[in-house]
Measured scan of single mutants.
Amino acid sequence: MASQGTKRSYEQMETDGERQNATEIRASVGKMIDGIGRFYIQMCTELKLSDYEGRLIQNSLTIERMVLSAFDERRNKYLEEHPSAGKDPKKTGGPIYKRVDRKWMRELVLYDKEEIRRIWRQANNGDDATAGLTHMMIWHSNLNDTTYQRTRALVRTGMDPRMCSLMQGSTLPRRSGAAGAAVKGVGTMVMELIRMIKRGINDRNFWRGENGRKTRSAYERMCNILKGKFQTAAQRAMMDQVRESRNPGNAEIEDLIFLARSALILRGSVAHKSCLPACVYGPAVASGYDFEKEGYSLVGIDPFKLLQNSQVYSLIRPNENPAHKSQLVWMACNSAAFEDLRVLSFIRGTKVSPRGKLSTRGVQIASNENMDAMESSTLELRSRYWAIRTRSGGNTNQQRASAGQISVQPAFSVQRNLPFDKPTIMAAFTGNTEGRTSDMRAEIIRMMEGAKPEEMSFQGRGVFELSDERAANPIVPSFDMSNEGSYFFGDNAEEYDN
Rank of each mutant, 00 (worst) to 15 (best):
Q308N: 14
S486L: 12
A428F: 14
R441S: 12
L466D: 00
Q398L: 14
N144G: 11
K48V: 10
I475L: 11
E53M: 07
A493V: 11
A179F: 10
A401K: 15
I201G: 01
R384N: 13
A2V: 15
E465W: 10
R246V: 06
I225V: 15
F230M: 05
T430R: 15
V329M: 15
R416N: 07
Q12C: 11
G295E: 12
G37L: 08
S262D: 06
G54M: 06
L381T: 15
S467L: 13
D160W: 12
P354C: 14
H324C: 01
A233K: 04
F39C: 15
Y496Q: 01
C44T: 09
A472W: 11
G5A: 15
E220Y: 02
M137H: 07
R26T: 02
A22N: 08
Q235K: 13
G462R: 14
L466H: 15
W207I: 01
I197Q: 05
M447L: 14
R382A: 04
Y219W: 14
G200K: 05
F258W: 04
S245C: 10
V299P: 06
N125Y: 13
E484I: 13
N309G: 14
H140G: 11
Q42G: 13
K7C: 01
I444D: 04
L276Q: 12
G393H: 03
Y487K: 12
M189G: 10
M481E: 06
A401H: 07
S353N: 14
T157H: 01
N483C: 00
R391Q: 03
Q327M: 08
L56H: 12
R8E: 00
K293W: 02
M105P: 04
P477D: 00
Y148I: 13
P283R: 04
V299R: 06
N205K: 11
A153F: 08
Y281A: 12
Y296H: 09
T151F: 04
G404H: 08
Q168W: 03
A451I: 06
V190I: 14
Q399A: 10
Q20H: 04
K77A: 12
I316D: 05
N76K: 08
T430Y: 01
I116L: 11
D127K: 10
E115L: 03
I116P: 03
G200Q: 04
P318R: 10
L68D: 02
G435K: 05
R243M: 12
R446E: 15
R38Q: 12
M222T: 13
A85F: 03
I316L: 15
D127A: 14
G126P: 01
M105L: 14
P277I: 06
V408D: 03
R446G: 10
G268D: 01
S60Q: 07
T151Y: 02
S269C: 14
K305F: 13
A129T: 14
R65G: 11
N432E: 00
L344M: 14
K198H: 05
F412H: 06
N321R: 15
R243K: 15
T45Q: 05
A284H: 11
V155R: 10
S392A: 14
N250F: 07
A263L: 01
L379E: 06
S367H: 15
F346L: 14
R65V: 07
F458N: 06
M159T: 06
R26C: 01
G431Q: 14
K31P: 08
L266E: 07
L315I: 15
M481S: 02
M371D: 01
R317K: 12
S69N: 12
E254Q: 14
G212K: 12
S413I: 03
G86W: 01
S287M: 11
T430S: 15
T15P: 04
A218L: 10
A153R: 06
S269P: 13
S50T: 14
S9C: 02
T433S: 08
A366I: 11
Y10I: 14
R195Q: 06
I406E: 04
E192A: 03
D439S: 00
R391W: 09
G268Y: 02
R208T: 02
G5W: 12
P89S: 13
P453Y: 01
N309E: 00
M481R: 15
A278V: 13
G126C: 13
K98N: 13
A337G: 13
A182W: 05
G288T: 07
V100M: 14
R204Q: 10
N432W: 02
F338I: 07
G5L: 01
T45N: 11
G86T: 11
Y219D: 11
M13R: 02
K90S: 09
N202K: 10
R175K: 15
L56G: 08
M196R: 02
Q20A: 00
E454K: 12
V109A: 13
G93C: 01
F479L: 14
E254V: 10
S383G: 13
G185H: 12
R204P: 01
P318E: 02
A27G: 05
V270P: 00
A129M: 15
K87G: 02
F488C: 13
E495D: 15
T396A: 14
R236W: 07
M239N: 07
R106D: 06
K77C: 15
I445D: 02
P83Y: 06
R162Y: 09
T378E: 03
Q235G: 05
K103H: 12
C223V: 11
R121W: 13
V312W: 10
G288N: 08
Y313L: 12
A336M: 02
A373M: 13
G228N: 12
Q12M: 07
E495P: 10
E210F: 08
I194C: 14
G30N: 15
T232G: 01
G17S: 11
K113D: 07
D491W: 14
I365L: 15
K273V: 04
A85D: 01
C164P: 05
P161Y: 00
T437I: 05
M196P: 02
A218C: 11
A471L: 01
K48Y: 01
A284Q: 04
Y148N: 11
L47V: 14
R267H: 05
K293A: 10
P248V: 11
Y111E: 11
T430Q: 01
W207E: 05
E254H: 11
A366Y: 05
G177Q: 07
P322I: 06
G268N: 12
F291Y: 14
V186K: 08
R204A: 04
A366L: 02
V186I: 15
M447N: 09
D290F: 09
S413T: 11
K227E: 12
P83E: 08
D112M: 08
Q149L: 05
G404M: 12
R246G: 10
G185R: 09
R213W: 05
S245D: 00
N247E: 02
Q364I: 12
S467Q: 09
F304K: 01
T232H: 15
I365R: 00
E294T: 14
F39S: 07
E115V: 06
N205Y: 14
V186Y: 04
W104C: 13
G295S: 03
Q42H: 12
W386H: 13
G249F: 05
P354F: 02
A70C: 11
S438E: 00
N202T: 13
R204D: 07
I425K: 03
D439L: 01
G177K: 03
Q398F: 09
R221W: 10
V408Q: 05
M374P: 02
A123E: 09
F291G: 13
M481D: 00
K351P: 10
Y385G: 04
M440G: 09
N76D: 09
G393T: 02
E46L: 08
T232N: 11
N125V: 06
A442T: 15
L154W: 05
E292C: 14
Y97H: 09
R348N: 09
